[in-house]
Nucleic acid binder design. Structure first.
Lengths: 199, 199
DNA sequence: CGGGAAGCGGAGCGCTGTTCCGTTTACTAT
DNA sequence: ATAGTAAACGGAACAGCGCTCCGCTTCCCG
């Protein structure tokens, strides 16, 4: 089934060319910058121009826009994912850990123009983004959720995926509407999770 | 300041031409039908074609897409608004009234493709829709909310506008994602509103 | 240093929303 | 009835977008 190329453990593929790596770098930097100014919906041409490359290049490196977004924010998503277990150990109670982690997640979403909206939409070619975010973060959320359930702080029956989608949705459109603060709504949602304190 | 034309109480303006009224009718019907199939984001051309009119006509009758959407759903929004006071009188408690009214609102949103999303976005030329929905429904929601606060069933401090935007957001993307049921999330949100029962 | 593959760039296509103006149509005053 | 006029119509045309495709350039390895 396999051919001769992969006899050794080393990768048999030729390493990426130097200009390719350079351009990928330039694209990531440019995209990050453009996303801040114009949101993740910024025209592809604008990103390409800002990076000083052609459009073919951008599509070769990041076939779909979601791939680019994922690449740009991978670090932050990773940080968020890793914060989960850390909070779980450090916080005074499982529910507090959950709340603090959700705060982190919300902060991440509201500081990036339109990211929440992009994450929520499963069409429009944003599938990849939807999938990545959720694959990476849902398990983290699930552990926090389960711990809080086990501790009797919240009622069972709510699934991590649904909760995260709900939180993500609540963060949509928080830009340019000073009368809508998603944090308050998320706070309400978490509160709704709580089991009435018995003590 | 005024001229001779409006001496009588009658409207001095000429009535709309018959073909204009006919076309408006055709457009509303066609739009309603297309919205069901393709969502409120359906291409203008498609709606115009389905109505058998040119694109100039559609833009003359409904300058922005939001105007068309508002016109199509005006009846249902009105019904929802009027259900508020009715529920307030009939329900067993103010909070129950609020919950039932919210159910109505959610049902309305989830049965229309992409309406929730369109309502939430204040850019993209959907301003009018945002404004209409909120102007009409926020006061209704506010009364229900205040009544529940006065009855001591929920904590004060949550504003109707924010609550409605939150609920609207929670309903986004409920199509084609069988794993996300906005009703459960809205239920959580309302639960978060409740003051812990004292009895 | 030379050949070939990996990478690049942007013209071009298709699909949108939106405008604009020559043509048609319905109403009215005679 | 009919002629005149303003209202209404229709769709060609323009601009902005995503995405593809292919001739050209650049790098790398022998």
């Amino acid at each position: 089934m396999v051919t001769s190329a992969d006899r050794s453990g080393e990768a048999p593929v030729r390493a990426k060319r130097a200009d390719a790596r350079r351009n990928e770098r330039k694209l990531l930097d440019a995209a990050a910058s453009v996303f801040v100014d114009s949101g993740v919906d910024a025209p592809i041409r604008e990103i390409a121009a800002s990076a000083g490359v052609g459009m073919g290049t951008i599509y070769r490196h990041f076939p779909t826009r979601a791939d680019l977004v994922v690449a740009v924010y991978r670090h932050q998503v990773e940080a968020c994912a890793e914060a989960g277990p850390a909070l779980q150990d450090g916080a005074e109670s499982p529910f507090t850990a959950l709340r603090e982690w959700v705060d982190l997640f919300v902060d991440f979403l509201v500081t990036k123009h339109g990211l929440a909206h992009a994450m929520g939409s499963d069409s429009s070619g944003f599938d990849t983004l939807h999938a990545y975010f959720l694959d990476r973060l849902v398990p983290v959320c699930e552990r926090l959720l389960d711990a809080a359930v086990d501790a009797g702080e919240i009622r069972p029956g709510t699934r991590a995926y649904e909760l995260m989608r709900g939180i993500g949705n609540l963060c949509i459109g928080s830009d340019s509407d000073p009368d809508y603060d998603p944090r308050r709504m998320v706070e309400l949602l978490l509160r709704g999770l709580r089991r009435p304190v018995s003590s």
